[in-house]
């Protein structure tokens, strides 16, 4: 069995340890004897929309976001839409999460249109949300670190990934964190997200492998280290939000 992972705009949108998410996906597949190939996709390079089973799209600096936004408004965006329509799973963190929504409304100027693949809208906030983040989800606890000034609000098509226990999550108001729509998951949790939240990594791996290999049941792994990291992080988050 093999798995194809596309890392979107790694040269422009990869900060805050996003590499850890790709490492976690790849290792957890390899530990189950699944061959893995990771390809970077970036601005100005034609995307092969048929290739990936799984997309990862990370956070980004403001400047990177401009170039990415321009690229996604053209052929890059069309390719990403076709990937998801073709059954690829996707994990979006922070800036990537915002760009998959309908729009980003800056403090001044016209709204910047997003890909419109997640039923969420983001507007700029004054105060930046920086700190530890813990959310409860139906599949397990999500722990991480958030660092964003955008406020994201969910429409009816998107379901929250979880409920905030510590931190701010989507907007600091409705206690929701992240969004799930089909096989697309967006979150503000980095730090890095997947190594400490192996249940989320495995959910994405399951969806991704299904695209070309049919339904697969993933062999359970010994997640002692992952669990310990998650527990320590959750304790720290409660003590020092």
């Amino acid at each position: 069995m093999d798995l194809r992972i596309a890392h979107l705009y790694p040269d422009l949108m990869s900060i805050y340890g996003d590499r850890g998410n790709v490492l976690a996906l790849a290792q957890r597949a390899r530990w189950r004897d699944v061959a893995v190939e990771v390809r970077p996709y970036s601005a100005g390079v034609p995307f092969d929309a048929e290739w990936p089973d799984l997309l990862f799209f990370g956070g980004g600096q403001d400047v990177g976001q401009d170039i990415v936004g321009a690229d996604l408004a053209g052929p890059g965006g069309d390719a990403v839409r076709r990937m998801v329509a073709g059954g690829a799973a996707a994990l979006l963190v922070c800036g990537g999460y915002q760009l998959f929504g309908h729009e980003y409304v800056p403090e001044q100027g016209a709204p910047i249109p997003g890909l419109g693949m997640l039923d969420v809208r983001t507007r700029a906030g004054k105060k930046r949300f920086v700190g530890n983040l813990v959310a409860d989800t139906p599949d397990g606890r999500l722990v991480g670190f958030e660092n964003h000034s955008g406020r994201t609000y969910l429409g009816p098509e998107a379901k929250p990934l979880g409920t905030v226990v510590v931190g701010h999550g989507n907007n600091g108001e409705d206690r929701t964190e992240g969004a799930v729509q089909g096989r697309v998951i967006g979150t503000y949790s980095h730090g890095s997200c997947l190594p400490k939240n192996p249940w989320l990594a495995d959910k994405l791996l399951g969806w991704a492998l299904e695209r070309r290999h049919g339904a697969v049941s993933l062999r359970p792994l010994d997640d002692a280290e992952e669990r310990a990291a998650s527990e320590q992080a959750a304790l720290v988050a409660r003590a020092r939000p």
């Binding site: 190594p195 990291a229 320590q232 992080a233």
Partner: peptide, 17 residues
């Protein structure tokens, strides 16, 4: 204070347990 994150990092880098 974040020893477990570090141990997990070593695991994913391939250092045997």
């Amino acid at each position: 204070l974040r020893s477990r994150d570090l141990a997990n990092r070593l695991k994913y880098a391939g250092v045997p347990r």
